[in-house]
């Protein structure tokens, strides 16, 4: 069997990234949209860690920053979701159109 190279990991990361993008674009439930964003961030993290094997530890440090950012994003996003749910009794993104037009 051929050895596993960096390219293999990058392909997995690309697949996860595309899945996340599809989820963000097509789902209506806000919670699942936020989960798809987490999927995208994790794909990026896998890229960073895979590259860190070639170019040194900087990628791993940056992956930790990305995880910090994901935690902040999840906290604020879910806070907004709770505030929105209290006002409109719905969790669908396409009904969040107060600022549209």
């Amino acid at each position: 069997m051929s050895p596993i190279t960096t390219l293999h990991y990058l392909v997995v990361a690309a697949a996860l990234f595309v899945l996340g993008v599809i989820g963000v674009l097509t789902r209506r439930n806000v919670v699942i949209v936020l989960m798809s964003v987490e999927l995208i961030l994790n794909a990026v993290n896998l890229n960073l860690v895979a590259f860190s094997r070639i170019w040194g530890l900087h990628g791993q440090v940056f992956a930790i920053f990305v995880i910090t950012d994901a935690a902040a994003e999840a906290a604020v996003g879910l806070g907004i979701l709770i505030a929105f749910f209290r006002n409109k009794e719905t969790v669908n993104v396409d009904e969040v159109d107060l600022l549209k037009w």
Binding site: T68, D69, A71, A72, E73, A75, V76, L78, G79, I80, I82, A83
Partner: peptide, 13 residues
């Protein structure tokens, strides 16, 4: 950033 996120989440929710 984490401090801002904590305050933001509390204010929102």
């Amino acid at each position: 950033l984490l401090l801002v996120a904590i305050i933001g989440a509390v204010v929102m929710a």
